[in-house]
């Protein structure tokens, strides 16, 4: 029953995409608009995070404008926060930069996963698309598998740069206002809530859901490892286990 419902939900997703995204002459919604609209709700949990970022920059004793410059230069919330937290604690540049990059190492998985989709794209899009390849944009591209290259490109860029524009604005506000949202509200919890919602959307098959559950267990077992390296191990191990299991069952 569960499986059937998932299958049906999955196929209805595909048929929804058809008229909206492929047959653009007949429908008002363009892939640009769709990408922007899909990115908007995903930005909500990033708002408290932007204010946390502002506090971290202030605590590190870094001028606001310099801290904010990391938003366009790095464009990665967790990476930016890690970098300034460690610099604020007096870590060396080499130590802070390498820790921040290890925290962001999951982007290598995104790059690998999207590499086949970027093969039929023009060169400029490889350069520009890579710049906005963040967690949320990656998952959106996986939840909505768009076949047509131009539609994919427009959707991807719209989602990416909608998120980018909002992140620039809200990290600026975060740097200026600092702790504008009382910590006691617990709004930071919106981030894991969104990610579990994205996890469910990305798990449109029973085996993908099993992979996600397995990854949770492995991530928990390795959660004591520094710089979130447990995430990398959880992905690598659970993907391997799922492949072996699929081989066995077929």
């Amino acid at each position: 029953m569960d499986c059937l419902q998932l299958e049906r939900a999955n196929s209805s997703n595909y048929s929804n995409l058809g008229p909206t995204l492929v047959n653009m002459n007949k429908v008002v919604t363009s892939p640009f608009a769709r990408g922007s609209l899909d990115a908007l709700p995903l930005f909500i949990p990033a708002i408290p995070f932007a204010f946390v970022f502002g506090v971290v920059v202030a605590n590190a004793g870094i001028p606001g404008w310099l801290g904010w410059s990391s938003s366009p230069i790095i464009f990665g919330g967790a990476i930016q926060v890690t970098l300034f937290t460690l610099l604020g604690e007096g870590a060396s540049v080499a130590a802070a930069v390498s820790a921040a990059l290890i925290v962001g190492a999951r982007h290598l998985f995104y790059s690998l996963t999207l590499a086949p989709r970027f093969q039929d794209q023009p060169g400029w899009f490889r350069w520009v698309g890579s710049y906005v390849l963040i967690d949320q944009v990656f998952v959106l591209s996986q939840i909505k598998p768009i076949e047509e290259p131009q539609t994919f490109r427009r959707y991807f860029l719209a989602a990416g740069f909608t998120f980018w524009t909002l992140w620039m604005m809200f990290t600026a506000l975060g740097v200026i206002l600092g702790p504008a949202i009382p910590a006691s509200w617990g709004v930071e919890f919106a981030a894991p809530v969104l990610f579990i919602s994205l996890m469910m959307a990305a798990s449109n098959r029973k085996d993908k859901l099993a992979a996600a559950a397995l990854a949770m267990g492995i991530a928990l077992a390795f959660s004591h490892l520094p710089h979130r390296t447990g995430i990398l191990l959880a992905v690598a191990i659970s993907v391997t286990v799922m492949l072996v299991a699929r081989r066995w069952s077929s």
Binding site: R106, F109, Y110, L112, T113, D135, F138, V139, Q142, I143, P192, F195, I196, L198, M199, A202, S203, K208, L209, A211, A212, A213, L214, A215, M216, I218, A219, G230, I231, A234, V235, S238, V239, M242, L243
Partner: peptide, 11 residues
């Protein structure tokens, strides 16, 4: 499997 497992591990 990358998308579901990365999201799970991030949570």
């Amino acid at each position: 499997y990358v998308a579901p497992t990365v999201m799970a591990a991030l949570v």
